[in-house]
């Protein structure tokens, strides 16, 4: 479904990702762990097409199509979703209007009829309820005045509404207490249907107790240095990233 071949990317001429390989098949959950500065967030931005994140080599295919050749919105319409580590506040644009526009743009791309206001409202209410966001959050400006945890839940709510092919969760666990973590994880797990794939980017093993990965990859220095099953995450939890060499021991202290 998502194939990343020999990906090299740089930000402001600084090479961050060099030679990343990864293949995500339908229904799989891949966790990407790694020390700070390994390029974890960069990967999400590169895949979603953020300005300033330049791919210098390699290719990425989504369902056989060249992802890197698409505009940001086209990637989303093709089924890629990025849950931000730091969701942006946009006062004045209501969450509801935003999501309706989003869902209908994606439906249009899929050749489906747009949802009516009533149909959409019903879905939005259900999604808000699922992530335990009060309904008035739908009417508020996008992330406007939301707490850190509310922003993360709002990301998951958007994912539920958008129904992507592949969702990248960029540190969706950071700054969450256990209850909020459970809500986020439940939201994600509810969307696992054997078809939809996930790339869970996280610094800590904790989230992976709630969202069970099929594969765990360690990202360091812009490439995957080690892959394994869920037990790899536990190994990291126990002994940190020391196996990566001295360079990372300090960062993890």
């Amino acid at each position: 479904m998502l194939k990343i071949n020999n990906l090299h990317a740089s930000v402001e001429d600084k090479s961050i990702i060099h030679g990343l390989e990864m293949e995500v098949k339908p229904g799989e959950v891949h966790a990407i762990m790694g020390p700070n500065g390994a390029g974890k967030s960069t990967l999400g931005y590169v895949l979603s097409g953020r300005d300033g994140y330049e791919v210098t080599e390699g290719s990425v295919e989504l369902d056989g199509a060249d992802l890197l050749d698409m505009e940001v919105e086209e990637r989303a319409q093709a089924g890629l979703f990025l849950a931000f580590q730091y969701p942006v506040e946009i006062p004045g644009v209501s969450n509801m209007e935003f999501m309706k526009e989003s869902v209908n743009a994606i439906r249009e791309h899929q050749g489906k009829e747009p949802l009516s206001a009533a149909e959409f409202l019903k879905k939005a209410k259900a999604a808000a309820k699922q992530v335990q966001l009060p309904l008035d959050f739908l009417k508020r400006g996008v992330n406007e005045g939301f707490s850190g945890g509310e922003k993360k839940r709002n990301e998951i709510m958007q994912m539920i509404l958008i129904e992507p092919r592949v969702a990248i969760l960029d540190e969706s666990d950071s700054g969450l207490d256990v209850d909020a973590l459970q809500v986020v994880a439940d939201g994600v797990n509810s969307q696992r249907d054997g078809e939809r794939s996930f790339i869970v980017v996280t610094h800590y093993q904790r989230l992976l107790d709630y969202i069970k990965p099929d594969f765990v990859h360690i990202l360091a220095d812009g490439k995957i240095v080690k892959s394994g099953d869920a037990s790899l995450a536990h190994e990291v939890e126990k002994s940190g990233y020391s196996f990566l060499g001295k360079k990372y021991e300090e960062a993890e202290a």
């Binding site: 505009e71 919105e73 946009i90 004045g92 644009v93 989003s102 743009a105």
Partner: peptide, 26 residues
């Protein structure tokens, strides 16, 4: 903010309208 809207599949022209208009709608 524009990038955020685009990552949700909102078309660029529409995203610009939403963002700019949001600015005064507030």
């Amino acid at each position: 903010a524009l990038f955020y809207l685009l990552t949700r599949g909102v078309n660029r022209s529409k995203a610009l309208v939403m963002l700019n208009f949001g600015f005064i709608q507030e």
